[in-house]
Write a protein that binds this DNA or RNA. Structure first.
Lengths: 340, 340
DNA sequence: TTGTATGCGTTATCAA
DNA sequence: TTGATAACGCATACAA
């Protein structure tokens, strides 16, 4: 039967002189099989090079072996790191990783997402930040009976539906570190307003100031948009304040590097005249001069855990470690404040 | 029949009082159908919210709607740009994008790739550089009857199996541009040896020197490995030469930025004391100081064309534009050479 | 233009 | 422990 075409389960059954079902049992490691039959069937499978057809399996099982990563993320490094983590978890399994972008600003985002789920019917979906904060997408997953995990820094869903990083505490530690160098006027460049991650990071900033006994000064908080240019702009505004900050915490590396460049343009030396700390630990952070002190978050690990949670069988022990620690990476962009 | 479950083609057929086949014809836009029947069936489909099951379709058609991007690429921006291009082409179609990494150095790479093809049986595969230069993977695709496109800068396969960028000519233009500023000692920092892209770029460098009437001086050619650190190292070596170069062309931005940092460390001012040109136009290129003059290659466009070629039906007109132009992006890292 | 019967390659049911 | 037979949901030959 297999002239040129792939051998099927029927070919195996015929050659091994057993039923299709028995072959199916061998493929799926059914426990209720005599060792003898199993060995025999396995040898035939080996011999003719039979490989189960994934689409047929998908139809019969009413599920496929695809995990989808749904994102609306401008940051390439972030995206690739998540993919890396997911793929680590998928290695050695039958699962594959599908990538699907959505447009946060599109009015049809919900319908687009629905269409995607209908088109591909993935077994599970990982919602990446910032789109993971969108409750409607999660709701649609539930409607479709598609499992999902939301990657985020804040608690936006039930714990079993989430993989979290503790941004707030990480930022707190970073700002405490700045304060420990002796800084009193520590500025914050915030992320996009309305984003939970920006909010979490601001809270961490406020936590730290409180802990260090410093007052929160709205003058020292500038709005950014997670982009390089917005970092430049925010920094320039800060430099014009009556009481110029001696240190800046930026809610991501891109803005931190923007602040770095802005400082250089203004002739302010980093770190001697100004300390800067970023967030993300992008590859760039280590390549700018001076190398940027920043917070590294466990993106790869979050991707990995998300995938593991999606693939877990009902009777598997639950994966508990869903709140992953970020870590301060100290480099050369922080020093004690200049003397007044 | 659809209590809680998705409606199927049977439900549509029953409610519309037509045969399954007729419904199937409507789904697939068969021309031989009366408008009346079509409208009627379509209204029923709309009413009960029927969506064809992709796995059943895949089984019956003996093909699915998945394009796989297979890569072994350390550069996040590159990867994401290719994905972006592919996804642009896929938008509005039934296709999805699967991402599969392979390990260039693994001895089992061929078997791993086979396993992947068997597991997912994608409709088509895009092989990304540098793994696209591996002939064995292409051969495996042919064995499996899986369509493939190789993205590369050199001609490594038949034109219909390729999407190319003209690295060589782009490098030639970049180096000519340097020469036009008056530089005589133009150095080259090469990419990883044995890679076709590195070879193409070197040829472009040699083309330009020849065109500008400059001799090729092996003293001014240093080996790099496409990494930031290798760029630093290569630049430091060049600075120690008896006849120090007044300009450097680096085969990618990471190395170019490495050279930039190395120059700064040595107190060499860019561009006044040294001109530098990179290749890739990564986001970083525009963020370093001085902003890097570099070559932008059409990565997104290449991804898009690759996907279009894969999805093209046999009777579609062939997609001819498979050699895509790179482009010199002039910024601030090039100036006339210092006077001697 | 439409319908009937059958195939796609696997898993599930239930009986032996 | 095994097997015959029926799903799974859609598409294709061939007829009508």
């Amino acid at each position: 039967m297999d002239q040129g075409d792939k051998p099927t389960i029927n070919d195996v059954a015929r050659l091994a002189k057993v039923s299709k079902k028995t072959v199916s049992r061998v493929i799926n490691n059914s426990p209720q099989l005599s060792d003898k039959t199993r060995k025999h069937v396995e040898s035939v499978i080996e011999e003719i090079g039979f490989v189960p057809n994934p689409q047929a399996r998908a139809l019969a099982l009413r599920r496929n072996f695809i995990i989808a990563a749904v994102h609306d993320n401008p940051n390439a490094q972030f995206l690739v790191n998540v993919q890396k983590g997911v793929l680590e978890a998928l290695e050695g399994t039958d699962f594959g990783l599908l990538v699907q972008p959505v447009n946060r600003r599109s009015p049809t985002i919900a319908q687009d997402f629905r269409d995607f789920l209908e088109r591909q019917r993935p077994y599970g979906v990982v919602l990446l930040p910032p789109i993971s904060e969108n409750n409607e997408l999660a709701k649609i997953c539930r409607e479709f009976g598609v499992r999902y995990i939301r990657m985020a820094s804040a608690k936006v869903d039930k714990p079993e539906q989430m993989v979290r990083s503790n941004d707030r505490d990480a930022v707190r530690q970073a700002v405490i570190y700045i304060a420990q160098q002796g800084h009193k006027r520590i500025a914050l460049i915030e992320g996009r307003r309305n984003s939970r991650s920006a909010l979490e990071r601001r809270k961490g900033y406020e936590d730290a100031l409180g802990q260090a006994g410093l007052a929160i000064n709205e003058e020292l908080i500038e709005q950014g948009g997670y982009t390089f240019d917005s970092g430049v702009e925010a920094a320039l505004k800060l430099f014009n304040k009556a009481s110029r900050p001696t240190a800046i915490f930026a809610s991501n590396d891109e803005m931190a590097i923007g602040a770095l460049i802005a400082a250089r343009r203004k002739g302010i030396e980093v770190p001697r005249g100004l300390s800067i700390v970023g967030f993300d630990d992008t590859p760039m952070a280590n390549h700018v001069w001076p190398a940027l002190t920043t917070v590294r978050w466990p993106i790869v690990e979050m991707g990995r855990i998300a995938a593991l949670k999606l693939m877990a069988k009902p009777d598997d022990p639950p994966i508990s470690e869903s709140l992953l620690p970020s870590q301060l990476v100290t480099r050369d962009s922080v020093a004690p404040p200049p003397e007044e």
